[in-house]
Amino acid sequence: MPLPLELWAEVFGYTDGICLGNLILVNRALGQEAERLLYRNVILRTRGSFHLFYQSIHACRRRAAIVTGIHISSLEDRADLDRIPSLLREFHNLRRLTLVLFEARLPQDHMSILQAILGVHFPSLSSFSIMSPLPLNDCFLNFLESHSHLQHLDLGSMQLLSGSDLSRFRYPPIRSLTCTSRLLAHLSPIVTSLTRLHIVSCSSSQLIRVAEQLGPQIVSLRLGSVYIPITTYAVNNDFASMSLYDVATRFPRLRFLQIDMGQVPEGPSC
C-alpha cells in the first residue's frame, strides 16, 4: 500500500541535499515534494554550491518560487559576487535573507555590488541579517525603509556612517533587533513593536542607557560580549554599574536573559 505524500515528506525531512536531489528523479509526485524541501531554505557557503544552485535556478525558473529563505556567505570569487543581485531578483517569495559577505575585502572594492543587492525589493521579506565591514549608509536605510513587512533585523557589528542623519528615517515595525549599543543609541523615534533585543557588545553604562531607552518594552534580552567593570566608573558624573537586580528592575517585562560574559581590566568603561 503506497504511503501518502505527507508521510513521505516527514521521511524526506531526515535526508540530506544529495539524497533529495536523487529523489527528484524518482517520479513526479515524490520529485515535487523533494524539490520543495530542497529549495525552500538554501544555504550557500562554497563556490561549488553557489554554481550548482545558480545553474539549477536558471535551468528551471519555477524553482525560484519555492525559495523562502537563503543564506549566502564566504564567497570570494568576483564573478560569483557579481551574480548575486541577479540571482536574488528571481526570488519573489523570499522571506528570510542572510548575507555574510566581504569579510576579507576592502569596503570600496565591493560597494557597487552591495548597493545592487540592496536595490532588490522583496515583497514578503520578514527577516534580514547581514554581516559586512561596510557602515550603515543611506543605501542600507533605503532598503530597510522600503520593506514594511520586516520583523527581524540583524545588523551584527555594523556602525553608522559618520555624519548620517537619521532624523527622517523610520524603521519598519520590527519585533527583534541585533545591533551594537552605539547604533541603538540612534534609534529614534522608539520602535514600539520591538520586544526582542540582542546587543552585540555592551558596557554597564551603555546598558543603563538602553534601559532608559527601551526598558519598559523588552521581553527578551541578549547581551553579547558584555563588559562588567571590576570597579565602577563615573559616567556623566554618575557611577555606572548594573546588577541582575537592576536589570530586572529596569526591564520590568523581561522574561528571557542571556549574557555572554566578558571582563575588562580597570579603566574607563567602553
Rank of each mutant, 00 (worst) to 15 (best):
A65Q: 03
Q108C: 13
N22I: 10
M158L: 06
L153D: 00
A104G: 11
F169R: 04
T178C: 14
G17P: 06
L30Y: 04
S148P: 07
Q258M: 09
R255Q: 13
R168C: 14
A34Q: 00
N137T: 08
S127H: 10
S124H: 15
T178K: 11
Q55T: 13
Q115A: 14
Y245N: 15
Y39S: 02
I57D: 03
S188G: 10
S73Q: 09
R96K: 13
D246M: 09
M261Q: 14
L75G: 01
L30V: 09
A79S: 14
F143Q: 00
I117D: 01
S129F: 03
T15D: 08
D165T: 05
R250N: 13
R40H: 12
A9G: 14
Y245L: 15
H71A: 05
T249W: 05
P173K: 03
I84E: 00
S188K: 11
I43Y: 00
L37D: 02
Q32M: 10
S86V: 03
A240Y: 06
D165P: 05
P172C: 02
L44M: 05
P189D: 12
R170D: 03
T46Y: 02
R83V: 03
T195G: 09
L141H: 00
A234L: 12
D246H: 08
L7C: 12
V200A: 07
L177E: 05
